[in-house]
């Protein structure tokens, strides 16, 4: 990483997650953002969805042991950040951050369909940690959303935009709309990834 701005401290290097991120650190509340503990009343606003897919390597094999992190706006398109603290449209029952470790490389993540932030199509930021790499980051969009044609991130990848759009699989499961999104980490069909550390 370039450190031309010399008044910044030199950053600790990121490193690979390795294959053994402890399953013990799993948090069910982060694997399903619509979930509440038994006996607790509360409900994130919005349309529940399941995002399903596979994380694939350069040879088309499943990337086992990957750690996936998700970040999104609430149903009204508002992110819960220091910048939106106290705003009326922050959903008290939805923080927008999810995480799961996939043992096999296939995943299923339950959340709500994000709303559109100003000037954007609904999307979920996906960060992948795994053995062999430092983090890689992309954004997932949803088939059929009106803002997709004008979204700056989708436009920025040109003809590769379809690689970032999750497809509705034509059915619901457990009251959730099901979307399918595969990630290709490397090689033919590689998913576009973004430089979130420097750009």
């Amino acid at each position: 990483m370039s450190e031309l701005t010399s008044n910044l401290l030199p950053a600790t290097n990121e490193d690979t997650c390795g294959p053994y991120f402890p399953i013990y650190f799993a948090d069910p509340a982060l694997e399903d953002l619509t979930r509440f503990d038994p006996g607790v009343v509360g409900q994130a606003a919005g349309t529940p969805i399941i995002l399903r897919g596979r994380v694939l390597d350069r040879h088309g094999d499943l990337a086992n042991g990957a750690l996936l992190e998700f970040w999104q706006a609430n149903a009204k398109g508002v992110y819960r950040t220091p910048a939106t603290e106290g705003e009326d449209d922050v959903d008290p029952w939805f923080h927008g951050y999810g995480r799961l470790r996939t043992a096999s490389g296939a995943y299923g993540y339950r959340t709500i369909l994000p709303g559109a932030a100003p000037g954007r199509a609904p999307n979920i930021t996906l960060t992948i940690f795994s053995d062999g790499i430092n983090r890689i980051v992309t954004q997932i969009f949803f088939e059929g959303q009106t803002g997709n044609d004008t979204d700056p991130v989708l436009l920025s990848v040109g003809a590769e935009a379809p690689k970032l759009i999750a497809k509705h699989d034509g059915r619901t499961a457990g009251g959730c709309e099901v979307y399918l999104f595969d990630v290709v980490m490397a090689g033919p069909g590689e998913t576009p990834f973004f430089d979130d550390l420097e750009s």
Binding site: R58, W71, R80, G96, A117, G119, P192, F194
Partner: peptide
């Protein structure tokens, strides 16, 4: 594993108007 999983394309630049959406809190 690094050979199997490291993206080969250069990382893309984030359009400035989308920058804040890439900051998980």
């Amino acid at each position: 594993t690094s050979d199997q999983r490291t993206p080969r394309q250069p990382l893309r630049l984030i359009p400035e108007v989308a920058r804040s959406s890439f900051v998980p809190v």
